[in-house]
Structures are given as structure tokens and as C-alpha cells.
């Protein structure tokens, strides 16, 4: 199937890097031509130099730290409330019946559609940003927890009844492990949504340090270095968060056939 592997058994498959190298090459060759009216200086050297200044002056770190802080705080608030509500709805028959459909319907509101509303409610400052991030993390967390808890199979419920598991044991050794895969999927989604909405909140809701602010400033000043650095950091951080949860998943779900 994999001819490359058959032909060069000891070489790593580097074919994927070809397009990336090409893009880099074109940029290096043609970058200075793009500078002018549209960009300040888009040549690879200039972007690299000004970018380095941004790192040295600490401006980059300041913006990055602010965004990280927002995602951590917002996620902690929204994610924990979401998990609690999802658990409640999943466990309680009446809560499920009363509020389950409501949760499913509210999820359909596009997250950035809430920006104007939160702007009016909380002003354009920090609290509106945190509220947006918390809401972005809330829905995936609540919905995934709710769905996975609700679907606990009767087979497992019966075993728990048969051996007269006490409530705490039932939670810890039956419900939580059963729901965990779904909850972790929710965690991944919630983190990625929270991260997107941090950038969005920083773009839409007034200027304060943050990667969104860096991107916005880059746009206003036509500074490609700022934008490229911003994009790299946003993408890299998103990737790292996802990789961290995947690693956590591998560890926590090692009882699953797919992971061993």
C-alpha cells in the first residue's frame, strides 16, 4: 500500500513538507515585491526582524499571556458550570425533560452573535470577554456531559443494582468512567471554542492586551510580522491544547481497545 515505505524503509516520509517548503520559498523570493502600498514590508527578512523585536521587547509575551489567562479563566468558569449542569440534566429525569430541549436549542445561537448582547450587558471590557469565553466553553461541556451520562446502558445499571453499589461508588466506578470518553470529547471542543472566542472577544470587544489585539493592530498598521506571529501563536496554542487533551485521553481511556 505505502510505496514510499517499501522503497525507502529507513527514511522518514517528508513528502508532506514539500508544499510548506514551496510556500516558504515563494515568500522568500517574492516577499519584497509585495511590500509597498499594501504592506509595510512583507519580505521574509523584514518580517523576521520586526517579529524578533516584538519578542525581545516583551510585547508579544504580554499579549500572549493576557489571552492565555482569559482562556484559562473563562474555560474554568464555563467548563465547570457546564459539566455540573450536564451531569444534573443527565442524571435527573425531570431536569432532563424540562431543560434538555432548551439546552439543545440554545446551543444553536452562534457564539459571536452574543457579542453585541454581552457588550450591552457587561460593557466592552474584561467581564464581557470572560462571559463570552465562559459561554463558548459551557455549551460543548454541558451537552457532551449530558448526552454521555444520559446514555448509561441498562446493562450497567443492573449490575450496579445487583451488587447494591452505593451512590458514591456508582458515580465513581460506573457513571464517571462510562461518561468519560464523551466528556473528554466535550473538553476538547470546549477548549477549542473557548480559544476561538478569546481571539474573537479581543477583536470585537475593545482593545486590551491579547493575541486578538496583536492581530488587530497588525491589520491596522499593515504589519505582516504581527499578523503572522499572531496566527502562529493562535494556531500553535490551539494545537497544543488539543494535543494535551488527547494525551490525557490516552491515559485515562487506556482500558479501551482502540488505545492499547
Amino acid at each position: 500500500m505505502n510505496k514510499h515505505k517499501a522503497r525507502f524503509p529507513h527514511l522518514p516520509d517528508l513528502r508532506g513538507t514539500v508544499p510548506l517548503a514551496l510556500i516558504f520559498f515563494v515568500w522568500a523570493l517574492k516577499g519584497h515585491e509585495a511590500s509597498g502600498p499594501l504592506f509595510q514590508d512583507a519580505s521574509i527578512g523584514a518580517v523576521f526582524d520586526t517579529g524578533l523585536d516584538l519578542v525581545k521587547s516583551g510585547a508579544l509575551w504580554e499579549n500572549y499571556r493576557a489571552s492565555l489567562l482569559r482562556v484559562v479563566l473563562g474555560f474554568a468558569i464555563g467548563g465547570s458550570i457546564g459539566t455540573a449542569i450536564g451531569l444534573l440534566l443527565g442524571v435527573s429525569f425531570w431536569m432532563d425533560r424540562l431543560f434538555g430541549p432548551l439546552l439543545t436549542a440554545l446551543r444553536q445561537i452562534p457564539i459571536f452573535g452574543l457579542v453585541p448582547l454581552l457588550g450591552l450587558w457587561f460593557g466592552m471590557g474584561e467581564s464581557a470577554k470572560l462571559a463570552l469565553v465562559a459561554l463558548a466553553a459551557f455549551f460543548p461541556m454541558a451537552l457532551n456531559t449530558y448526552e454521555s451520562v444520559r446514555n448509561l446502558p441498562t446493562a450497567y445499571r443492573e449490575v450496579a443494582a445487583l451488587y447494591r453499589f452505593k451512590l458514591l461508588y456508582r458515580l465513581r466506578f460506573v457513571l464517571v468512567p462510562y461518561a468519560l470518553p464523551g466528556v473528554l470529547t466535550g473538553l476538547k471542543l470546549a477548549l477549542s471554542f473557548a480559544w476561538i472566542s478569546v481571539i474573537g472577544a479581543e477583536l470585537f470587544l475593545s482593545a486590551a492586551p491579547g493575541l486578538g489585539n496583536l492581530l488587530e493592530a497588525g491589520r491596522e498598521q499593515f504589519r505582516i510580522d504581527m499578523i503572522v506571529l499572531g496566527i502562529l501563536l493562535v494556531g500553535g496554542t490551539g494545537w497544543a491544547m488539543n494535543a494535551a487533551v488527547t494525551a490525557l485521553e490516552r491515559h485515562l481511556l487506556r482500558w479501551r481497545p482502540a488505545f492499547s
Binding site: M1, N2, H4, D13, R15, G16, T17, V18, P19, L20, I23, L38, F39, S192, W195, I196, I199, G200, L203, L211, G212, L215, E216, G218, R219, F222, I224, I227, V228, G230, I231, V234, G235, G236, G238, W239
Partner: peptide, 28 residues
Amino acid sequence: PALERYFGLLFTVIRQVPFIAWAPLLIV
């Protein structure tokens, strides 16, 4: 499958950046 071997990585790299972060570059 050869196409995927060439473009898969580019795909993955671009996909990591949330759409909202592309906005300023696209506007420029």
C-alpha cells in the same frame, strides 16, 4: 493516497488556526 502524503501536513497546519485568526490577514 499520494496526494494526501504531499498535502496532508499543509492541511493539518492550516486547520490548526481558528477561522477568526485568519480574519485580519484576509482583511489586509
